[in-house]
Amino acid sequence: MRGLRIYAIAYLVFLYAPIFLLPLFAFNDADIIAFPLSGFTTHWFEELTRNAALQAAVRNSLIIAASTAVLSTILGICAARAATMADWPLKRPMMGLIMLPLVLPEIIVAVSLLVVIVQVFGLGLSNATIIAAHTLICMPFSIAVLNGAFQNLDPALEEAALDLGESRWSAFRLVILPLVMPGIISSLLISFTISLDEFIIAFFLSGANPTMPVYIWGLLRFPGQLPVVMAMGTILVALSIILLTIAELMRRRGLKRAGLKDTGGFL
């Protein structure tokens, strides 16, 4: 029992201590990342606003992450819905194949996509290629989350809406959609996060304009830039916490509306 508790605490320390170091050095008035700290500054954040290349990379990443989140969630909704409908031949093997990217090494996905896009289709590399690739790796997560949401629903709910005169589409919109909304938000959020910090695929597939992780990786060659990276990381962590909190609040509201018992969540 005692050992387990120590293990849990150690785990949390290893998980979160590096993250707490981010704001520490982001506001530290020194070029090098080392203790002791040498005073408070917002200099690195100011630098951030002056670094046009970094801003472009962040903008790129945000566009890619948002597009990926939307695409992967929409496709995930279609797949999860198909999975809840009546059995059709090949349904099981198809679902299995869709989930496969979950266990494929990313480097293999990246290399094979690069070959297909450039050699087979002869297309150039752009944000679109990254979005497509990120959608591919985010889909399994979206489907897993959305499958859960769809399968919790009583199929009679949709039939009841049909029975009361609604068309298939409006039954979906009026009954299914509001009830799976928490799942949709989770899916958006998860794919957004995965895409935002994905490195390998973005590294292989980005064209002239790198994503944020790729740009940061490039910065590491210049130690003097490290505190700027720390400032960047601080903003990202704050953003993630805000997003997670919103998602969790939405999830609880959804559960309450659906009249379901809360069975754990993030916060």
Binding site: D154, A156, L157, A160, D163, L164, R257, A258
Partner: peptide, 20 residues
């Protein structure tokens, strides 16, 4: 003729009350 266009209405075994 689809269920939405038939002059029938149904009370489901699970009642299928819209929870939201």
């Amino acid at each position: 003729v689809g269920p939405n266009l038939r002059p029938t209405n149904m009370v489901f075994q699970s009642y299928a009350i819209f929870p939201h």
